[in-house]
Design a protein around this nucleic acid. Structure first.
Lengths: 216, 216
DNA sequence: CTCAAGCCTGACCATATGGTCAGAATTGGA
DNA sequence: TCCAATTCTGACCATATGGTCAGGCTTGAG
């Protein structure tokens, strides 16, 4: 789409690099503000302040609040999907689903804001990513359901409804991001420690893997 | 708090009855609008329209947007807690936790908007119900953890961390309310049927109860 | 029936917010 | 160095929204 230097690598000039850096800073700030205030509660001014640039400059990079929001949501969606690769090359349910849980828990830990924006978007009826739900996500889901059904047919796990199993996986893992405030409050007001996170992961995996008969 | 007619039943006059009816209509409308648009995205005008009265009248019943929002959140919280009673009189984990799952799934089915408002509130850092989290919810949680730990000590279920088990219960059941749009989209764009809900309940119960070793 | 208390409402206001724009500052290739 | 393209910015605007208020309407106790 753009001229590049003779070398294979882009080798972006100072200008392009700065642009990308600014864009990332904006996305980062926007993700946080959208997560903490919701789309309606977020203000371009707040995002601009957090990103460290004047509001008018924000509009130079993202024409409207909605386009910025869309960029944030799409960014998260990409991370979501990428994390799901874990499940593909697995030999059986214990490794496959176990790895998927690990990956999703790690995302909840590292990108709680992204998870919250996603949750908010879906809760409000997916006004901007409805098409993704109907295409990419639907296909992805069908694919995983097929894998799970194969495992069931092979007698490697109990005959549970794959659809509802996926919902359980999403729900339990994302809960640690979306409700982290509640969890921290019940944890004495302190964030989960590394050990706490390990315990959480282990518990989720144990209960679910045993629950689908993939442990014995 | 108020004078009542000689009879035991309140027998509220026309006036009082109308007031309560209006109040309920407002709360119902507000719950829906807050759920669909978030606190920041919701407008008093929208709520008024949905409740079928002029905006100024809304402010006669609820002075500010925040006080109305607070009323909605507290209403949900009460339902939440009440549903948890199921778990108390149970003889063991299978019945107790099974009944709790049933109750929470039923709430997700009947009060999806309430669940969403709650989720949104917690996601945004619980600005209005932080005190509830630190008192009522913390106490409630401690009580249930004690019950679960007793069951574990008695060898009636596997030794899982009670805290994380509760999170799993909350996450899985509330997911059907908070993410119902996503679920419906993956269900071919149609709401879950009665049979679908039964299947969901059964699946959640089976996986979790088997997962905590309370089925054999 | 009377009338005070309670309920309802249209019109209005102050403010906050998303977005615009003209022009200044900077950059980097020629 | 020069200059066109790109990036940045303060000032500004139109609109939407939460909230107010003076006055009209309804209710029900006496």
């Amino acid at each position: 789409m753009n001229e590049e230097s003779p070398v294979g690598r882009p080798k972006k000039g100072r200008r392009e690099a700065a642009r990308e850096a600014t864009e990332q800073a904006i996305l980062e700030a926007a993700e946080k503000v959208f997560a903490e205030a919701g789309f309606g509660g977020a203000t371009m001014q707040l995002i601009a302040d957090l990103a460290g640039l004047p509001k008018a400059n924000l509009h130079y990079y993202f024409a409207t609040k909605e386009s910025l929001y869309r960029a944030v949501v799409e960014r998260i969606f990409r991370i979501w999907l990428h994390a799901a690769d874990q499940m593909d090359e697995a030999a059986g349910p214990a490794e496959g689903i176990g790895a998927y849980i690990d990956a999703k828990m790690e995302i909840s830990r590292r990108h709680p804001n992204g998870s919250k924006v996603w949750a908010s978007e879906v809760m409000h009826g997916a006004p901007v990513i409805q098409d993704y739900l109907e295409t990419t996500l639907r296909d992805w889901t069908a694919g995983r359901c097929a894998v799970i059904e194969r495992w069931i047919a092979e007698g490697r796990m109990a005959p549970v409804d794959p659809r509802h199993l996926l919902y359980m996986l999403w729900a339990t893992t994302q809960h640690y991001a979306d409700f982290n405030h509640q969890i921290e409050t019940l944890n004495g007001g302190r964030p989960l420690s590394a050990a706490d996170w390990e315990a959480a992961k282990t518990n989720v995996k144990e209960v679910i893997l045993r629950g689908i008969g993939a442990l014995d």
